[in-house]
Write a protein that binds this DNA or RNA. Structure first.
Lengths: 144, 144
DNA sequence: CCCCATTGTAATAACATAACTTACAATGAG
DNA sequence: CTCATTGTAAGTTATGTTATTACAATGGGG
């Protein structure tokens, strides 16, 4: 069980825009070829990133640009932009109310797990797009 | 997007065994009625918990017992018992190798996210079955 | 030693979610 | 006005999870 493609795809989109803006026209088709995914998915994801204030997209003309500097964009913002704000784990919705465990499990386990999720979001907040861009560039250098 | 029912179900099973062992016979049907889920799912989950050394199950006779004390059973053990050991996020498997972002994204983002996952597991390690049992009992008292 | 409730397990169906694809109206610079 | 591109909807395919049914294997109790 894993999270979906969405967040990693969004990260890759933003990295490509950061790296290629000004060099190539960053259309949904261009971005789709880097991720190797359907352009419609890119357009949907760009829409979510736009709504979150991370990019602006030129309808008609084509191409996307970052609204903020890479060091000001965190993985937390990206995650929140593309994932529903829901609990990390799916706790049984209809446990037996006659059982003392069943009638309290949601509250008790939910409390503990929400703390864990908040820690995860804190971790995401410490990772910026600039960090990832830097790692990409380092990896490219080592490749040569 | 969330994790499946599995870990919360396993937690509820273990809590029920801890609370009712000796009082009721903790068969898969009994446990299923607390979670309000199919007994076959309970039996599968019990099998995973047995393989992880957390419970012993009496085949033929019926009923399950904890192998360790509740304070010695952590959420991390339960999580590892029932979830595959895979990455938290699903990073595109076939990015474009001709794109400098595409050919490095798996390694670069994967590294960052594995750190986050390890933090999550560390958090799980700090939560014991005894903590949850205690919270259940407190919630029950407040209910009266 | 046999009975019977129960476990262990397989096979299949039902359901939910995600991704793919096609299609097309709306956009806006040239 | 043209045309590449975005935004969006609808339908399909693929995948994963849970539910359900079925039945052989188990093992204490009568």
């Amino acid at each position: 069980m894993q999270f979906s493609f969405r967040m990693p795809v969004a990260v890759q989109i933003l990295l490509c825009i950061a790296k290629f803006d000004g060099v190539f026209k960053t259309t949904s088709t261009f971005l789709a070829s880097s991720v190797n995914i359907n352009p419609v998915i890119i357009r949907k994801t760009l829409g979510q990133l736009k709504a979150a204030g991370l990019v602006k997209v030129a309808a008609g003309v084509g191409g996307a640009k970052l609204v903020k500097e890479p060091r000001e964009i965190t993985l937390q913002e990206i995650f929140n932009a593309v994932e529903e704000d829901e609990d990390l784990f799916h706790i049984q919705e209809n446990p037996n109310p006659k059982c003392p465990v069943g009638r309290n499990i949601q509250q008790v386990l939910g409390n503990k797990l929400s703390v864990v999720k908040n820690h995860m979001l804190d971790d995401f907040a410490k990772i910026t797009l600039a960090d990832l861009l830097n790692d990409i560039n380092t990896a490219e250098q080592n490749r040569q």
